[in-house]
Write a protein that binds this DNA or RNA. Sequence first.
DNA 1: CTTGACCTTACCACGATGGCAAGGTTCAGG
DNA 2: CCTGAACCTTGCCATCGTGGTAAGGTCAAG
Lengths: 136, 136
Amino acid sequence: MNISQAADASGLSAKMIRHYEKIGLLQGIHRSASGYRLYSGEDLHRLRFIHQARRLGFSLEQIRELLSLWGDHRRSSREVKALAMQHLEDLDTRIQELQAMRQMISTLADTCHGDDRPDCPILDNLAASSTDKNTS
Amino acid sequence: MNISQAADASGLSAKMIRHYEKIGLLQGIHRSASGYRLYSGEDLHRLRFIHQARRLGFSLEQIRELLSLWGDHRRSSREVKALAMQHLEDLDTRIQELQAMRQMISTLADTCHGDDRPDCPILDNLAASSTDKNTS
DNA sequence: CTTGACCTTACCACGATGGCAAGGTTCAGG
DNA sequence: CCTGAACCTTGCCATCGTGGTAAGGTCAAG
């Protein structure tokens, strides 16, 4: 199986697959006589694992660990769960940051009439917060 | 006012301030005889504006437009609001993506007992979704 | 044999920020 | 006056994950 077929079958791009190999997420990929990468069913399984983990927002470093745990039959589910919980916390943090922004923008946009007049609470706020101290 | 004082007063780092100048968000910054950047009260106002806009998650490109609108007394509040609404949509999209991830991770973590045993629904799911078709 | 569709490697780009290095400036204390 | 610390300058590299592009090799169908 060529790289573009593996890409289609895994949902990744050929570019990503080469990248994952370069950073060590994939190893021992076979090559044809002319140097083409050849993917086995097992390789494909691994690629799909990576794709799904990326869809859940895990970083490539985290995926490296997940793959290692996946391949280790003596691992404890505790380790995997800890990794997932850490990622959950990261997600929560990012969600809350974005929601705080969303809330503020939304409030400002509500008070801006958004017509031909030039006065605008949004710009006023950006400029006014300038004189606050709690601009973190 | 030196750059480190401007940094302290604006909440930005000196590094960021130089960067913002390089990409054109700040112009006409005065220099001392020896080449040190010197910041006026107006410059500081602008820096704080940028800082606040960054805190609300606007990109530097969006901030470039906001600054342009801020300085244009003939602009309509419509333009500003449109920019804010666009950003709001972007935020909503990102929040929803993260929440979908969060939901999935949370569900998987709930079903993982997280003890010394090796079986783990989290890894099973990552591996199993591998055989799904809807792996987008 | 040609053509087009694949493959290879290697480099540059994004966005926003941090870090480091090599060198110049300023100021206070001895 | 000299020295050292604490500033300033520019320039380059790193991050993270992905895309683009170039220059070249390979393969299969016509």
